[in-house]
Design a binder for these strands. Structure first.
Length: 839
RNA sequence: GGGGAAGUGUCGGAAUUGGCAGACGAGCAUGACUUAGGAUCAUGUGCCGAUAAGGCGUAGGAGUUCGAGUCUCCUCUUCCCCA
């Protein structure tokens, strides 16, 4: 899914600019090749299901095969791989698979523009990307690769769809949908950003279409419960909660029976039923079905024109805050049950049908948008909640607070707004005018796409039997290979005679197939299950293996999927749980969102010409240097700015490591007689293990690497001073390589071989540290006078308060400053400082 | 308009619970080696000051505290999400 927007282009060679890089001690291409071949040959990273070690499922969002591996892919995948390798060395049986999110629009657009079949385009891109991914040196077990556009995968999308359909969780309905005129398809609400298509940025318009939906709203409350999993970023949880948008309120009907229509009432939802007596108008969305029928003959022309205009507008224009709230009167009135008043019914485009009921009660005194609308159209403004201290004068804007007293509210006058709310809600329920209810902002998940390159929805329409699901044994419904690709706004499947025409599975009559295909987020809602048994053919996944590996222990990927993939997958798993297909309710226990990598301060794009291709750098400096540099840039969740100069620092460090490992420990023979000398490296070594391990654990790659650099600096000093014996030196080097192994796997393996370590370094356990040895023996005691640093003393780490204070006061620099002034007290912070407070 | 996150040298960024600001790296400077340097090694590098003493310094302003990058309030800026 990473790089989803970057689709469209075939591999290109034009980015092979000459980069100026440091020279390495070794031939990085040869070294990468040597070990990648060896690992592949040995099946070193083949994941075994029967491994007795505890399992660890670490998944990174699989990419869309756009054609070329972008540095952004490496940024998402290399640190994830390092963490997975780290967990492997910690003793887990690690599943860290890779696959391709292979359905989607770019392939079909390529077909339209250049006449290449989406299958051909996609598969050749995958081939290229697979090669590039291999060059990264990850522990992906390629025997587990999955490709969603192949029937062996998508037939299970269809199978799940049928299960959901049977359970009433998939349904078809006519609804005004978001339409992207450029992509020629409808979009789910989640795919519309600020009224524009998430993919191509084209303003979205509205279309009424028959669409398939998945009933995600049934799980709204459960999706708000994040207590089942522990470790998700607060930001994502908040975004999901906001997206779901639960609000408690009251549904209330307004009486329109005098209009002698089939409908006797208009239903509307409000969170402020306490303001019901302040309703001076109602507003319907232009798409509201009642608009046409309610409008009186003398207003018809005006209303029709207005509705037509609103229809042509994009959501961006309609929701713009700068725009004046304006609308037209239908000539019709509705009765407010609470006070029997007739209120005029207006049509205005600031109300949108897909949000709420498409009808809003206008309370200008207590809602700012209604206030502006009333001002513009000369509608009355009636205060019904008196703000504390209000003197009865006219208001310059709406009072939206919940503090206040009911006024102009008939029998409810004098109650506080809070009590008024409850009393009015009670009254409404007693009289049957409506009742308390919970409303959600989230709508059901629209999965229909009017495109070819997706999973066909397994439904048949029969003139006699109606909507008939394709029987399970007839799956998969295959995509025909010979479709015509033209941007028409209808699925190419509709014009494919062989696909379109079929017979009814129930009665055998002439029937036709559903021609919409599924949103690709259906594929990614369960792909992690498929990785556990990718070749299983009796079901979407092997039930035992699914249970053994899932849920995913650690998921990593971009935050842009917060209210799409990450929410859909949670829903999907809950639905599967209720269908008895899985036994857990959350797909991803821990989530980490990496940031975005940019180049020269700007987002990488072809048009800017600042696209960084990892291949170029991997060839010049090897995969390890690129991996390590990406991890060193800064905190992983912060993203980073790629710089050619910066990567040279990494190359230098790698060279220093190479030189340190290629020293001959024999040269240290007899250099020191001091038995204490062996200890010279023990403290630094154990401190390094401790810090590097705890940092790697928490994805703090940048500081983990800084620790390792400090360690190599220390090793260099020790070597130059010939300060330790050969055994201590060998131990330190061994530790360094083991800690390096997850980050720079090829180099670590090569150097491990050089020092005679048993193949493979990646099967060795991570070194552990001894808390006692990691402790500093001496510390720098900071001496402050009135909070300002005046001296620093080197003292034993276990120094007590008395001794520390005595030393601090005795310091000549402190004495000079005291100069007869009175010492009020001395604050001692163990192991850190003494602050002498003087007057 | 609402909500959230953030603002630290020339740059990327470090900094348990409030306790040495600037780790580590880049860049830059000086020197060494060298036919050469885009290699390597050494040293220096927050600002003012003289190479000293000393002072200032984590967007700006106030506050709490023995002590604030960290906590509180206000202002400004940037980014993200929602409208």
């Amino acid at each position: 899914m990473a790089g989803r927007r970057a689709g469209g282009a075939a591999p290109s060679g034009e980015t092979m600019t000459t980069i100026r890089t440091a020279e390495l001690r070794y031939d990085p291409r040869e070294l990468d090749r040597k070990w990648q071949e060896r690992w592949a040959q040995d099946g070193a990273y083949r994941v075994r299901d029967d491994d007795p070690r505890p399992k660890w499922y670490e998944l990174t969002m699989y990419p869309y095969p756009s054609g070329d591996l972008h540095i952004g892919h490496w940024y998402a995948m290399a640190p994830a791989d390092a963490h997975a390798r780290f967990m492997r060395m910690k003793g887990y049986n690690v599943l860290h698979p890779m696959g391709f999110d292979a359905f989607g629009l770019p392939a079909e657009n390529a077909a339209i523009r250049r006449g290449i079949h989406p299958y051909t385009w996609t598969m050749s891109n995958i081939q290229n990307m697979r090669r590039q991914l291999r060059s990264m040196g990850a522990i992906y077990d390629w025997n587990r690769e999955i490709i969603c556009c192949l029937p062996e995968y998508y037939r299970w999308n269809q199978w799940f769809f049928l299960k959901l359909y049977q359970a009433g969780l998939a349904y078809r309905a006519k609804a005004p949908a978001n339409w992207c005129p450029s992509c020629q398809t409808v979009l789910a609400n989640e795919q519309v950003k600020e009224g524009r298509c998430e993919r191509c940025d084209t303003p979205v318009t509205r279309r009424d279409l028959e669409q398939w939906f998945l009933r995600i709203t049934r799980y709204a409350d459960e999706l708000l419960d994040f207590s089942l999993f522990m470790d998700w970023p607060e930001k994502i949880k908040t975004m999901q909660a906001n997206w779901i948008g639960r609000s408690e309120g009251v549904e209330i009907s307004f009486d329109i029976s005098s209009h002698r229509l089939e409908e006797k009432e208009i239903r509307t939802f409000t969170t402020r039923i306490d303001t019901i007596h302040g309703v001076t108008f109602m507003v319907l969305a232009p798409e509201h079905p009642l608009v046409a029928r309610l409008t009186t003959p003398e207003h018809r022309a005006e209303v029709d024109a207005y509705v037509e205009e609103a229809r042509r507008q994009t959501e961006v224009e309609r929701l713009s805050t700068e725009r004046e709230k304006h609308g037209v009167f239908t000539g019709a009135y509705a009765i407010n049950h609470l006070n029997g008043e007739p209120v005029p019914i207006w049509v205005a485009d600031y109300v949108i049908l897909s949000y709420g009921t498409g009808a809003v009660m206008g309370v200008p005194a207590h809602d700012q948008r209604d206030f502006e609308f009333a001002k513009r159209h000369g509608l009355p403004i009636r205060v019904v909640i008196a703000p504390p201290g209000w003197d009865g004068s006219e208001m310059g804007q709406a009072y939206e607070g919940r503090e206040g007293t009911q006024v102009n509210s008939g029998p409810f006058d004098g109650l506080s707004a809070q009590r008024g709310y409850q009393a009015i809600a009670d009254r409404i329920e007693e009289r049957g005018w409506g009742g308390r209810m919970v409303s959600y902002r989230m709508r059901d998940w629209l999965i229909s796409r009017q495109r070819y390159w997706g999973t066909p929805i397994p439904i048949i329409y029969c003139p006699r039997c109606g909507t008939v699901p394709v029987p399970e044994e007839q799956l998969p419904v295959l995509l025909p290979e010979d479709a015509e690709f033209k941007p028409t706004g209808e699925s190419p499947l509709k014009r494919h005679q062989g696909f379109y025409h079929t017979t009814c599975p129930q009665c055998g009559a002439q029937a036709h197939r559903e021609t919409d295909t599924m949103d690709t987020f259906v594929d990614s809602s369960w792909y992690f299950l498929r990785f556990t048994s990718p070749h299983y053919s009796d079901g979407p996944f092997h039930p035992e293996l699914g249970a053994q590996w899932c849920p995913v222990d650690q998921y990593t990927g971009g935050a842009e999927h917060a209210v799409m993939h990450l929410l859909y997958a949670r829903f999907f798993i809950k639905a599967l749980r209720d269908l008895g297909i899985v036994s857990f309710g959350e797909p991803f226990l821990r989530l980490f969102n990496q940031g975005t990598i940019i180049a020269s301060g700007a987002k990488m794009s072809k048009s800017r010409g600042n696209v960084i291709t990892p291949d170029t750098y991997a060839q010049a400096l090897g995969a390890d240097v690129v991996r390590a540099y990406l991890m060193f840039l800064g905190p992983w969740d912060g993203g980073g700015d790629w710089s050619d100069a910066g990567i040279n620092g990494m190359a230098r460090w790698v060279n220093r490591i190479w030189d340190l490992v290629h020293t001959d420990p024999a040269e240290l023979e007899g250099t020191t007689q001091d038995p204490e000398a062996a200890r010279r490296l023990l403290g630094p070594t154990h401190r390094t293990i401790k810090r590097a391990v705890t940092d790697l654990e928490r994805f703090k790659f940048n500081t983990a690497l800084a620790r390792l650099m400090e360690f190599t600096n220390e090793l260099q000093r020790v070597w130059q001073e010939r300060a330790v014996g050969p055994d201590a030196w060998r131990d330190a080097i061994r530790t360094l390589l083991l800690l390096l192994a997850p980050v720079t796997p090829h180099l670590a393996e090569e150097l491990w071989e050089h020092i005679g370590g048993p193949y493979s370094i990646h099967n060795q356990p991570l070194p552990s540290w001894d808390e006692e040895l990691a402790k500093e023996e001496e510390i720098t005691l900071v001496v402050q006078v009135n909070g300002r640093v005046r001296d620093k003393l080197t003292v034993p780490a276990d120094i007590g308060e008395e001794e520390a204070t005595r030393l601090a006061l005795g310091s000549p620099r402190v004495q000079a400053l005291l100069n007869g002034r009175e010492v009020v007290r001395a604050v001692y912070v163990p192991g850190r400082l003494v602050n002498v407070v003087v007057k």
